[in-house]
Design a protein around this nucleic acid. Structure first.
Lengths: 242, 242
DNA sequence: ACAAAAGTGTTGGACTTACACCCATGC
DNA sequence: GCATGGGTGTAAGTCCAACACTTTTGT
């Protein structure tokens, strides 16, 4: 404890907010309204205040910049390369946030605008994300993919009430594989506390009405959902657009 | 990006270094040589310097305070309650480090001393760990327990060369359950890339000499090691000392 | 009637558990 | 010899992928 920091250090929280829309994994990005990286897409986020924890910063910035509240939020990783921000020493705590398919969020006051964008497009190298936000986004996607296997995270992508088909759509969008509908529902229903029936059914929609469910009390899945593809392999109805 | 931090904020890296010794899960603690918490047990750690990433801070502090190098290191969680440090605003990035059963590390220059202590004793409420280090330690143990299931983390607790019995001892110490030796070795050997034989065998020791292995290239386990206990249940040879 | 989506039944194979039994060493 | 740990064989039970088939809706 002899060393003291030699230069001022600032701390931020940045959020990778993921959702599934029309079978595609999407991420919330803002357009930067200031230098550096003026006009570039970036993740929402901002500086930690003196009287708040970083977790509180994340919640506050999410609400301020995008109007979203009540999402699943978890710490992802700290990014602290001394040269990651041209303005000086800025360390960021990256968060993974998971949202249901919400109406396009309203633009906040800070950012020039916020919008859902395809994760594939943001990460294919053309998008010029600000700072190291491409790395943060990639870490968030990887974390979400992994956590689908052994936690109930997938339900955080769904509305309050959802069908097993909706839930399967989340897995298919994140894993890019088609899953067998029949085996999927059995597996989900046989996992205690994953989802609980509400008693209601879907009214509109093609095909036979589906039972509706909401999140159950479980957070960990035993046994895990396995990532195996169907014999037909490859992605579901919505092709991997690029 | 309008808000600027109002007060100076300092950033530290703190490490929960875990190992298994004599069938017990142990953690490396130092005795604090300064106020606050003078004389209390604490996790090794220190301030982030201007020109280094937090990951680099963790490696450096570990070497300086304990003499340990080359360990498995991973970010655990950021602890940032504004009142977690009586000296002012100090945010810490907690790390999980995993070490093989090394000789007692030499005391470093900063700390009054470093020693291995039983995790159970440190977390049973009597130990008066400094700051929020009990929470950090608990998070590290929980993370290590979980990661044993679906990653090859257990090999980081072993020496360069180890037997399957050594590896099983790691699982038993962390999970507090006895595992069937016969099924355990088959499971481990049937998981591609988990461990690779060196061709050598143990020379000394009770019973039939065991084949020696080293870590394989795999990092994730498919399928995961299941936490099931033997029918006899409960901990192995070394009773849960408390 | 047909397409589309939900849901049930069933079978073969993979994996797992529990345990019998054999191997190699120190004392 | 016998205790101690390493290692192989195997049968019963469980889980799961695959797929045939039925149900219920919209058009």
């Amino acid at each position: 404890m002899t060393d003291r920091p030699h230069a001022e250090l600032r701390l931020t929280a940045d959020l990778a907010v993921l959702t599934v829309r029309e079978g595609r994994l999407e991420v919330l990005v803002i357009r930067r309204g200031n230098e550096p990286f003026l006009g570039c897409p970036a993740l929402p986020g901002g500086f930690v205040r003196a009287d708040e924890s970083v977790d509180e910063t994340a919640v506050r910035e999410l609400a301020e910049e995008t109007g979203l509240t009540g999402l699943h939020l978890e710490q992802l990783e700290v990014f602290s390369d001394p040269r990651r921000d041209p303005r000086g020493r800025v360390v960021t705590v990256a968060y993974l946030a998971v949202a249901p398919d919400l109406p396009v969020p309203r633009a906040g006051s800070d950012a020039a605008g916020a919008s859902w964008e395809s994760v594939d497009r943001m990460l294919d190298g053309e998008a010029d994300l600000a700072f190291d936000h491409a790395r943060i986004m990639a870490a968030a996607v990887e974390r979400a993919r992994t956590k689908l296997e052994y936690t109930t995270l997938a339900t955080a992508f769904c509305d309050e009430e959802f069908t097993i088909g909706d839930l399967r759509g989340v897995y298919e969008a994140l894993w890019g594989t088609a899953l067998d509908q029949r085996n999927f529902s059995r597996k989900v229903l046989n996992t205690d506390g994953f989802i609980v029936p509400t008693g209601r059914r879907t009214t509109s929609g093609l095909g036979r009405p589906a039972k509706l469910y909401r999140r159950g009390p479980a957070t960990m899945l035993h046994p895990p959902m396995l990532r195996q593809a169907m014999h037909g392999t490859e992605s579901p109805g919505h092709p991997a657009d690029r």
